[in-house]
Amino acid sequence: MRIATWTLAVLALAVLVLPPIVQLDQSLVDLRSAGQPPSFAHPFGTDEVGRDVLLRSVYGLRVSFLVGLVAALVSMVIGGAIGLAAGSLGGLPDRLLMRVVDGFNALPHLLFGIFIVALFAPSAAAVVVSVGVTHWTTAARIVRSEVLSLRTRPFVEAAVSGGAGRMRVVRRHLLPHLLPHLVLATVLMVPHAIWHETALSFLGLGLPPHLASLGNMINDGQRSLLTGDWWSSLVPGLFILAPTLAISVLAQRWRDRSSPRWRSELEL
């Protein structure tokens, strides 16, 4: 828990502080410094065209955080709206929407994501759309089940009995109770979205190749591995692994603290 907090804090600080101080020219190459191992001047070495691996990793992580967060938000908004509609309308609309969810779940989401991102020119926006459109089903299921539970609670019945319309019940009684679940689901989705962003960039379908992206860096680093330059792949790999693990650990801890029932069930 403490390690996860510190890891995330250090990485977040690096992402926020370093780019404004040290500007990165994305297209600059320095062939005289190519393939240098870690040293004082370049703590994590340089890549095959002489670019600083640490600086590019920090820039790449910044992009990953941003794309991951926005993609997670997009998936939560789509999933939240569909789950809310299904749970609160019930009946036929609920059954139809849930079959759509089943249909999306039946698709291999990485392949479907690749299909979507291939429709656009390589860009961060394309990755956001790809991850958002393929990952909303989890949010839809969470929100629907919560709404089904909430709508039978006496306080919601009392509001309906007192004349509250559907929209008022949603706005005043359902959404405020759903919000903590949605926020938690969004945070848990961020690491997953980061993995997808890096995977798509690794496959050459994400960000343009010249831009610093962790996926692009690992892809480039593959070639350097053959010449023994292990750092050019390992460092961006660790930059993916560390924040995603830290966010997952912290979010799961938060979930356990906010819902003790889940924790006791898990311990059983």
Binding site: R153, P154, F155, E157, A158, A159, S161, G162, G163, R172, H173
Partner: peptide, 15 residues
């Protein structure tokens, strides 16, 4: 709204 229900458990009956 012509019929009002008062529940047994007030804790569950209020947001």
């Amino acid at each position: 709204t012509r019929v009002a229900l008062i529940y047994q458990q007030p804790r569950l009956a209020v947001d």
